[in-house]
């Protein structure tokens, strides 16, 4: 990786937007590249996906107008999700005290309780009266790793349908970082329904990512300070 990094540096890049399968990859690059290059973490392993969480926060604020008092459920494969980790960090930072992580024990490790979340293994309890439902993408590899028996059983227990959505508040919004698996974690009715703000998320991503790029680059242009990094902290 270091050789790749040196090559990209030699191309006089001003910024690296990094997506990598290893947790901590953006952090590693930020430590090893020259100080005049900005690093944006676009997703590292299971660790963090900061701009996704930021665009999700923008989406929530545009629809709900506030964060305090909100009840939010994140449903599915929390264990492998960098999106869930960044969302949890963003939500707790913004003062949301009721964040529920919903899924079977194989996909929701108990340690998340120490990070400010409530863990639910039952979808009805998890969705009860929530303002926001975040569904996560379920990868097919999870069946091979003995984390789940089948897609159909997962859908039966944790899939978001018109029925399970009725347990949430009547004005609840449904979010998903995409791409969605119709019939695996979310039904088509819900994904395309009136509660869904999935495409708003995509649109808000443009503004958030423009802002991130602009702030990182203006930092570059105005001063010789250390690199502007967008990492987990």
């Amino acid at each position: 990786m270091l050789d790749t990094l040196k090559n990209l540096e030699a191309m006089q890049s001003d910024m690296f937007i990094v997506r990598h399968s290893d947790s901590g990859a953006a952090h590693f690059i930020a430590e090893h590249c020259t100080p005049n290059v900005a690093i944006i973490n676009a997703g590292d392993g299971r660790h963090a996906h900061p701009t996704q969480a930021m665009l999700d926060m923008l989406t929530i604020r545009r629809h709900k107008g506030r964060f305090d008092g909100l009840k939010i459920a994140i449903v599915g494969d929390i264990l492998h999700s960098r999106v869930a980790r960044s969302q949890l960090q963003a939500l707790t930072t913004l003062g949301v005290s009721d964040v529920r992580l919903v899924g079977p024990k194989t996909l929701v490790p108990s340690f998340f309780a120490e990070m400010g979340a409530t863990i639910c293994h039952d979808l009805e309890a998890g969705l009860k009266d929530v303002d926001v439902v975040v569904m996560l993408r379920l990868q097919k590899e999870r069946m091979k790793g003995a984390l789940l028996p089948s897609e159909s059983e997962f859908y039966r227990l944790y899939g978001l349908t018109e029925e399970s959505l009725s347990w949430a508040k009547p004005d609840a919004i449904v979010m998903h970082p995409g791409p969605i698996n119709r019939g695996v974690e979310i039904s088509s009715d819900v994904a395309d329904g009136k509660h869904s703000v999935i495409l708003d998320q995509v649109t808000n991503g443009i503004a958030v990512r423009m802002a991130v790029l602009s702030m990182a680059m203006s930092g570059q242009l105005q001063s010789d300070e250390s690199p502007a990094t967008k990492d987990e902290e």
């Binding site: 947790s23 901590g24 392993g45 963090a48 340690f111 998340f112 120490e114």
Partner: peptide
């Protein structure tokens, strides 16, 4: 070590 720190940092 499987614990809070590895979970938080996304390390297996």
């Amino acid at each position: 070590h499987e614990g809070l720190m590895s979970t938080m940092h996304g390390l297996a």
